[in-house]
Nucleic acid binder design. Sequence first.
DNA 1: TATGTTTTCCGAAACGTTTCGGGCAGTCCG
DNA 2: CGGACTGCCCGAAACGTTTCGGAAAACATA
Lengths: 340, 340
Amino acid sequence: MATLKDIARALDLSITQVSRALNDHSDVNEETRLRVKATARAMNYHPNASARKLVSGRSGMVGLVVPQYRNIGQDRLFMEVVAGLSTQFSGRGMQFVLHMMAEHENALPVYQKLIGTAMLDGFVLIDPMEQDLRIDFLRQAGVSFVVHGRSGKTVDYPYFDIENEQLAYDLTAHLTQRGHRRIAFLNGRADKSYVTVRKRGYTRALRDGGADVLPHLHLNGEMDEAHGLTDTIRLFSGEAVRPTAIVCGNVRLARGVYQGLAALGLSVPGDVSVVAHDDELPALRASAFFPSLTVTKSPLRDSWEPLADCLAGAIEGKPLGTLQRVGSYSFIERNSVATL
Amino acid sequence: MATLKDIARALDLSITQVSRALNDHSDVNEETRLRVKATARAMNYHPNASARKLVSGRSGMVGLVVPQYRNIGQDRLFMEVVAGLSTQFSGRGMQFVLHMMAEHENALPVYQKLIGTAMLDGFVLIDPMEQDLRIDFLRQAGVSFVVHGRSGKTVDYPYFDIENEQLAYDLTAHLTQRGHRRIAFLNGRADKSYVTVRKRGYTRALRDGGADVLPHLHLNGEMDEAHGLTDTIRLFSGEAVRPTAIVCGNVRLARGVYQGLAALGLSVPGDVSVVAHDDELPALRASAFFPSLTVTKSPLRDSWEPLADCLAGAIEGKPLGTLQRVGSYSFIERNSVATL
DNA sequence: TATGTTTTCCGAAACGTTTCGGGCAGTCCG
DNA sequence: CGGACTGCCCGAAACGTTTCGGAAAACATA
């Protein structure tokens, strides 16, 4: 591989000047710069990442650390994340490193080691918990990172998120405005940060709309079809008061809910109204539901670009203000809600 | 981060001796070695990967470069590969870098750049073509790599593979021995190396078994359920002579074949016998077919360990002989074959 | 002519590690 | 007692890059 020294020798220049020319520094003659760049290309020069990292502290590599859980091979969401981020970083000339942990390995030692060996410039954190040790750890270690979501009380780090509270509020309020008073919410796993946030929006909308806040109508769990199905059947099985409408954390849940209601002989929206939040994962289209599903929509695939932007910015040392972004969502009314 | 210098200062030793102690070199006092290792642990020392790479040429990072195709998010096979390899390399204290290319990007410049910047020690190549430019390129660049499969005439590189020719031979011979003379083979895409190899085994078995070699019974295509279904229906639709048995490249194809035969009102194995090769992907069990499927079986998940072994060995400079491995397969007779 | 100001360049140090060549005791052998 | 060997240690160079502090030359200003 060609080095700076080779180029310098070929052009009878100093290594210093070649380096400065390639990095577009000010004090190098325009003509020299062009000559240097031309021969660099000709000699197929690529700067050695290790050497660069050693002195400048940057390697151009960022990482994502994920636990390897049971059925990760079947998780489209996960692939969406990996493909999206990888593409984004590649497009910025950065390398994206995926590190998969063993199933129940503790994440912190892994970060510890990755930081210690200093090969990565920063990390993307997905799926934050409401109390997330990783955030504290990385913040304290002084490493750049960006979070997909927000968690904890002090949000003094780069992130990309959507307005989960407002979105849950909107979905719930849409139902209260149409006369619903008993509204269930199939939410995600209780330890995720966005789940807490959405619950807040849901509860607030219930209060504002004068509806009943019934604890047994708020359910936590995995957000897949199976849970949508079983939760629905449970909601309509016991002695407890039954909902007239269901808010679903995502479209997968809603699919299960539709199946459950069908199995119970209940119609949408005749007997029960259903709304959901739509991440727009491929092969699961809310508009193709029957009846078509009313949703708040914000495509997950719009996250990768701002996430990569924010991490790259954080590494470059840009001010925090420019590194905290909130994505928008739209409300799409379809045919899954009845007015009481 | 603690450096060698810090440890040396703390123990009043030279940097040299600390380095040698940590790397278990010969000429360092046993007691010194222990003291050094203890304080290294205490100071939470991790060797700087960039510095190490710069001088020793090793960074402990290996890469996998994959094209990002249409439905990668739904491809379980792909996730299987990523999860498997990542786990294996993590277990060896190495970092696994996944680089995803844009959809129709040319692979060679990507390798070019990855090699040029010299951050990776080696590559895993999956899904080799019969004529694979990547192999030539990496060989010529002098970089370590391991291939999942074999391709080309001169196989002078590390690989892990299974005996694809013999396996196709066995499946086909199993049918000829039971009196079948017109045997179809739903093979993979023609440019893949294992597809050519399997075709050879299939053809040889036909000849050896005195069966007819009918070109229209050998079909190439994507190895998924959809192609199994459509190919089956085509096989039994035209004027051409029809098979009494079908060999499938994998179980996904076989699933489609079963559906196709059912749709045509043909029974397995009464009207048509079916055999397949089973990679043992999760959630697709050949034994749960009805009737249960006769297969050659070699779990794909047994590939990752030897692949990682071979790449690690290649990087360490082990002789080629130890880096070329062939996995075994077993023949499992079930109920999908009739004797004519 | 003396003094500044630009423009363009370069030497040397630094990053953290590995490794080559050598050095200094102490011990063993003849 | 001289030479060879062994055990333990160290200084210095090297890897390829960036960057700091200057410096020579050319030109403008007073």
